[in-house]
Each structure stands twice: as structure tokens, then as C-alpha cells.
């Protein structure tokens, strides 16, 4: 059974939101339909499913790793080559802060880049059905299904909502 998708194109946001409601009412599962826009509409503007994300965990995790490594690096090097300066303790926090800060930032940034690649689903090797008019302000409602029998139902919902065009892939 092959995966199919159809894309309904709308010029105004209201009918696109109606199409999203219609798909929900017609029994399509959350996650099988989505809205494509060229502009970031406020979250929930189309009544779309808002999935959970874990993006905030990546920088936090990276920063903790970098912070821990920096404590290890600065402590071990100072203990390995103990040298009292100005009567201060061998492990002086203020002398270690600069390297701790920079390594925390470095690891945080690297982990954020990794997190973005994973959480944004980018690169999207199979972008699927699409229309270039979406970046001109049109709104696309894409429906994906494994069951061919539902194609007609989805088309009906999109047409009733006022789709100006329906594309198949």
C-alpha cells in the first residue's frame, strides 16, 4: 500500500481553517493532515494539531556537558600543575570562570544546532506535495493517507471548504 497525499490550496486563511475542522470532523487522525504557509500565522490559527517538542532540552543538555567538561579541564590542569599565585587557592573559581563560560556556550551552541536539525525535520529529503504559491501567501492543507478509499472523502472536505485547487501526489 503506497502513501498518497493531496494538497488543497486556499487564498484566504478562513476557508483553510474550515478545511482543517472538516478533516477532523470527517475522522482523519491528527498528524495525517497539516497546514502549509509562507508566513508564520499565530499558533492555533488554523486549529491545527500542536505537537510537543523537545528543542529546549538540547541547549540545556549541551550547556551541562560543556560546563562539566570545563570544570574537569580547569580543575585537572591546575591540580596537575599546582602553582600558588598571589596566595590564592590552587582551585580558584574566578580564574576558572572564563573557560567555564566559554565552554558552556560552545557546547550549548553545538547542541542547539544538532537539536534544530533533528526537531525541525530538516533537511527534509522528501518534502512531498507542495506549491510555489504558498510562499506568495496562499495556504495549503495537505492530507496524507495510506488508504486510497479516503482520498475522495478528503477531496470532498477540501472542496466544501472552498479549495481553489487540489493537487495529487
Amino acid at each position: 500500500m503506497s502513501t498518497q497525499s493531496i494538497l488543497g490550496l486556499f487564498q484566504q486563511p478562513e476557508p483553510a481553517a474550515d478545511a482543517m475542522d472538516g478533516l477532523k470532523e470527517a475522522g482523519f487522525e491528527l498528524g495525517t493532515f497539516d497546514v502549509l504557509t509562507g508566513t508564520p500565522y499565530p499558533e492555533g490559527a488554523f486549529g491545527e494539531h500542536v505537537p510537543q517538542h523537545r528543542l529546549f532540552r538540547y541547549p540545556a543538555f549541551g550547556a551541562i556537558i560543556g560546563f562539566t567538561l570545563s570544570i574537569f579541564l580547569t580543575s585537572v590542569t591546575q591540580l596537575a600543575y599546582p602553582m600558588v599565585t598571589g596566595g590564592k587557592p590552587i582551585l580558584s573559581l574566578f580564574a576558572m570562570l572564563i573557560i567555564m563560560y566559554e565552554m558552556t556556550m560552545l557546547s550549548g551552541v553545538i547542541a542547539t544546532v544538532v537539536g534544530i536539525v533533528i526537531e525541525s525535520r530538516l533537511p527534509n529529503m522528501k518534502p512531498g506535495i507542495y506549491d510555489t504559491r504558498i510562499t506568495e501567501g496562499w495556504i495549503g492543507v495537505v492530507v496524507t493517507f495510506d488508504d486510497d478509499s479516503k482520498v475522495a472523502d478528503a477531496e470532498g472536505v477540501l472542496n466544501r471548504a472552498g479549495a481553489l485547487e487540489i493537487k495529487h501526489a
Binding site: E119, S120, N124, P127, I134
Partner: peptide, 24 residues
């Protein structure tokens, strides 16, 4: 563009990464 099509997830993560990289 790395396959950007403007899904809800892509826009949400875009907002967050601007905030995160801006803070960094």
C-alpha cells in the same frame, strides 16, 4: 532551504531557534 515547506512544526521551531541563537 533544506526542504522547507512551511509546516506548523517548521514555523514553531524557527521561532524557537531565533530566540535560542539570539540569546547565545
Amino acid at each position: 532551504a533544506r526542504g522547507w515547506v512551511g509546516t506548523d512544526v517548521q514555523w514553531r521551531t524557527l521561532r524557537m531557534r531565533i530566540g535560542m541563537f539570539g540569546t547565545f
